[in-house]
Design a protein around this nucleic acid. Sequence first.
DNA 1: GTCATTTACGTTTATCGTAAGTATG
DNA 2: CATACTTACGATAAACGTAAATGAC
Lengths: 296, 296
Amino acid sequence: MNYQHLEYFLKAAEYQHYTRAAEHLHITQPALTKAILGIEEEIGAPLFMKRGRNIELTKYGKIFFDYARRSLEEINHGISAVKHQVNSDLNTVNLSALCSINTTFLPKKSAQFHLAYPDCSLNITFKYTTAIIKDVSNYNSTFGLCGEFDNESEYTSLEKILLYTEPVKFVISRNHPLAHKKSVEAAELKNQPFAVYNVSTNGTNRLLYELCDGAGFRPKTLTAAYNDYGLINEVISNQCISIVSYTFYKQFQSLGFTELHIATSIPLIQKIYLVWVRDANLSPVARGFREILMSK
Amino acid sequence: MNYQHLEYFLKAAEYQHYTRAAEHLHITQPALTKAILGIEEEIGAPLFMKRGRNIELTKYGKIFFDYARRSLEEINHGISAVKHQVNSDLNTVNLSALCSINTTFLPKKSAQFHLAYPDCSLNITFKYTTAIIKDVSNYNSTFGLCGEFDNESEYTSLEKILLYTEPVKFVISRNHPLAHKKSVEAAELKNQPFAVYNVSTNGTNRLLYELCDGAGFRPKTLTAAYNDYGLINEVISNQCISIVSYTFYKQFQSLGFTELHIATSIPLIQKIYLVWVRDANLSPVARGFREILMSK
DNA sequence: GTCATTTACGTTTATCGTAAGTATG
DNA sequence: CATACTTACGATAAACGTAAATGAC
């Protein structure tokens, strides 16, 4: 069975006349005859009968007609739905990014994008580094904007490029016991609860582990969040310590947290990378967005 | 697009594994790959993406899946519906017959048929000769049992065979002015209203026209009925004259009508024919039923 | 090195058009 | 004899299987 031939059947049923139906289908009349004979063979019943020198539907043809029509309708709707989605995707860039990027960097770039591509959409979801690179790997997002991770042993299909670096800060609730200290040693954090990103050894989590390693302990991670807003919430309501970018810190410090200054030689800096799947063929819009992100 | 290939797609989507899906489909794995690539080309979007050394549905594949499933379901239901109808038709004989045949002849033959074919059905509709031969010509009925008609100039595709003859009677309402006359001349019927079969020059209508022709007038036909019950109804309620078979007359004369004896040399007899389409290929059951009708 | 998908290639099958054949009015 | 469906036949394209290649673990 063949959708083309079903179309032939529907047209033949509509006109009850092979020659005219064949004209409208842009095929020859014998081709139509053979196609119908093929369907008849397959369903085991005649679809048309001769009436004088014309044809008309048999009762089997009448029964079959509605099913055939609905079946064709369904598959055509399916094709339309996919084509529509493809078309919409061609005009949409999906981005998975760190919250901190939305404080200063992304708003500017987003504005540039919308000016350059007024008919296109930019979908942004805010997550943490490990989740972002998963999104990109899974093709859930075309691009990722995230912190440090290792794409030479693990995520080898990903391409990353350093966009900029930004300072990060340890933060605590204003009414936390350590909040009034001018500076604390890393070792003092040994039994403090941390709010970190869910099962991640990338981004700022990596910085925390490095710091604690240097002081000879593993940080006590109390809760896991999915983005910086989640971390801040834990810091304020559950007396946790966490790490956020300087720009994020500045924008939200009124919420009730403050900086915890740590005496350490480790540079409290986060690298921000742009990430994509190396062999993915990007739409023109996606390529344009990448240009915008990489421009000064 | 091709239903076979859609099935392939559904199985591949189900297993998310070409090799296993191909096994279940009894085709080779490269054939499956090519079929999927063909659909992808046609709908303009990838259906599967590689995930490690396996495959999984893309978002387009997921969108397309439900439409494809419903489309296949629909066409399979269509095929089932036709096959079911074919099967049921193989066990059913459709007969279009005169009412008079149901008084003595048909009940016997029907009983014989059901004894011989206990799992088969006999559908009978009661009409008048012209309608019966139309039913048979249109393949609405396999057989017809009707009166005289001309199949040598007009209905040349029909085969007819004389089964028997039966006397017919002119009938009138008991309170009709002519009801008490012992016998009337044909000429006396000139201004009487007749109940006849709808636009028919076959069967008993033919007899009536022949009789009136001989007396030099055209009968005044007041109403048209579709079978003998309709005629009788007109005879009783509208004071019409009509013609029914002797057996019918005997069975229903209690309803309020009586015989009108006409003085004529024309034999008041109707020939009863069995009719079918000459080249129709009859099912075994239909052939068996014909044997029963034609047997003594 | 094994498992899984893709590509290459030759064989078989299906589709379609041209042209001749058959049947109807 | 014109109209309309059917059959015959050859060219083109599609479908499928075998075998080799690529890629992931």
